[in-house]
């Protein structure tokens, strides 16, 4: 059995050459090998969205992807969203609107929101609901999240 395989990819803009253990999920790889711990584990079955990252620009559940599938891909995690210390406008809007409480779902939530704004720069409530229905927030910050996303879209 091949224990490890080489994976070449970019993460938050930087090229990386690594080895990934076969059987390891992308989530574990990001957290344990890349030491980017913003992506969280909440269910391991793609239901909660805490592990969402952007793969080739699209939000995906990293708990349902294998690390070896990362080969040749472009990965963006929450750590890659702010540039040169400047927060992304979605991050700023989340702060302004208090769109999180415990913060555990927030990285996934913000990345889902970011991807939505790429697709639809001026999303409606319905667009937001559709795009984020796979991001569970048990603290119930949903109304504030909708407000934050709409505020980020108005620019």
């Amino acid at each position: 059995m091949t224990e490890k395989m080489p994976v070449n990819f970019t993460v938050n803009g930087d090229k990386e050459e690594r080895e990934a253990v076969v059987g390891q999920t992308l989530l574990k790889f990001i957290r344990d090998e890349l030491h980017l711990t913003g992506a969280k584990e909440g269910c391991e079955i793609g239901e909660c969205g805490a592990c969402i990252v952007l793969l080739d620009g699209k939000p995906v559940n990293s708990c349902l992807i294998l690390a070896v599938e990362l080969d040749g891909k472009d990965l963006v995690t929450i750590e890659g969203l702010s540039k040169n210390g400047e927060l992304d406008r979605v991050q700023k809007a989340f702060i302004k609107h208090a769109a999180f409480q415990c913060g555990y779902c927030t990285p996934g939530m913000i990345l889902s929101a970011r991807a939505l704004l790429e697709r639809k720069p001026n999303p409606t409530d319905e667009d937001i609901n559709q795009a984020l229905s796979g991001n569970l927030c048990r603290c119930g910050a949903y109304q504030e999240i909708r407000e934050a996303i709409k505020a980020s879209s108005e620019k």
């Binding site: 929450i78 702010s82 991050q91 702060i95 913060g103 913000i110």
Partner: peptide, 8 residues
């Protein structure tokens, strides 16, 4: 706030 929106 800043810690939580940046994954830190």
């Amino acid at each position: 706030a800043v810690e939580k929106v940046t994954g830190m």
